[in-house]
């Protein structure tokens, strides 16, 4: 022990330093979430948390498992590639519980115009009308069927 007689005060400082480092490591382990750094400089668990958010739009595959009749009508018409929820809105709640949650039927005089109202910015290939002149506020499904809108014998 004689050897350390002159440097004993230094050892004390080293001891205090080591206690400090230990304390820092303990606090760091306590405060930094376990998954931090799993994929990078962020909390890895947040990926699973974001992935677990609720689904609001069921997706057309889900709709088509039950509504096969509509799918057949749609397939034959111009709206074949328009997904169900594009017009009917988010329906995951209805898909989860079809018995009690019934979707409202959209008002076609408003709904169809969202896409088919004429506008100079719309691409030229897209079929559009000035609804005020074309239907004068009448619901579009007076003449057209929404799922296959072409009128039989019509040129367009």
């Amino acid at each position: 022990m004689n050897r350390f007689k002159d440097s004993e005060h230094l050892l004390r400082v080293v001891g205090v330093f080591l206690v400090g480092v230990t304390l820092f490591l303990c606090l760091r382990a306590w405060f930094v979430p376990k998954s931090f750094g799993e994929f990078g400089h962020y909390r890895g668990d947040s990926l699973a948390e974001i992935a677990a958010l609720p689904i609001i739009h069921a997706g057309h595959e889900t709709c088509e498992t039950c509504h096969t009749d509509v799918l057949e009508v749609k397939k034959a018409g111009k709206h074949a590639n328009v997904n169900c929820e594009a017009c009917h809105g988010p329906q995951a709640k209805h898909a989860d519980d079809p018995g009690s949650v019934k979707p409202l039927l959209p008002d076609t005089s408003v709904l169809c115009a969202r896409c088919h109202e004429a506008s100079s910015a719309k691409p030229k290939w897209f079929p559009a009308v000035i609804t005020a002149e074309h239907s004068m506020g009448m619901p579009c499904n007076t003449c057209h069927t929404s799922h296959s809108p072409k009128i039989q014998g019509d040129k367009k």
Partner: peptide, 23 residues
Amino acid sequence: CTLCYHRITKGLTTACCEACPTG
């Protein structure tokens, strides 16, 4: 935008792609 991470990790497309009528 999360690119609908909760949907694409389950094999669905994003809500905006689902609702886009013209693709």
